[in-house]
Amino acid sequence: MYDMKNLENLKTLGKESEKTMKAFWAFDQAALAEGAIPKKYKELMAIAVALTTQCPYCLEIHKDAAIKAGAAQEELAEVTMVSAVLRAGAAVVHGTHLMK
Results as ranks from 00 to 15, higher is better:
residue 53 T to I: 14
residue 85 V to I: 14
residue 73 Q to K: 15
residue 47 I to T: 01
residue 29 Q to P: 02
residue 33 A to P: 04
residue 29 Q to R: 09
residue 51 L to F: 03
residue 52 T to W: 07
residue 47 I to C: 07
residue 12 T to H: 13
residue 74 E to F: 12
residue 68 K to I: 02
residue 94 H to M: 11
residue 18 E to C: 13
residue 25 W to Y: 07
residue 100 K to E: 02
residue 54 Q to G: 00
residue 10 L to F: 13
residue 72 A to L: 15
residue 79 V to H: 03
residue 21 M to N: 06
residue 10 L to P: 01
residue 66 A to L: 06
residue 82 V to T: 06
residue 48 A to M: 09
residue 52 T to E: 12
residue 92 V to Q: 02
residue 87 R to I: 10
residue 60 E to L: 14
residue 20 T to F: 13
residue 30 A to N: 10
residue 99 M to R: 08
residue 5 K to H: 10
residue 96 T to P: 07
residue 94 H to P: 03
residue 5 K to W: 03
residue 27 F to N: 08
residue 68 K to Q: 13
residue 39 K to Q: 10
residue 83 S to I: 03
residue 76 L to W: 01
residue 26 A to F: 06
residue 44 L to D: 08
residue 37 I to E: 00
residue 90 A to I: 11
residue 32 L to W: 00
residue 30 A to G: 05
residue 99 M to V: 02
residue 58 C to I: 02
residue 4 M to E: 12
residue 74 E to A: 15
residue 25 W to F: 10
residue 13 L to H: 12
residue 57 Y to A: 03
residue 90 A to Y: 12
residue 74 E to I: 12
residue 34 E to R: 09
residue 24 F to E: 05
residue 32 L to N: 04
residue 92 V to D: 07
residue 24 F to I: 05
residue 78 E to L: 04
residue 33 A to F: 05
residue 3 D to V: 00
residue 40 K to W: 03
residue 36 A to N: 14
residue 92 V to C: 09
residue 49 V to C: 10
residue 81 M to V: 09
residue 44 L to I: 06
residue 80 T to E: 02
residue 20 T to G: 00
residue 98 L to Y: 10
residue 4 M to P: 08
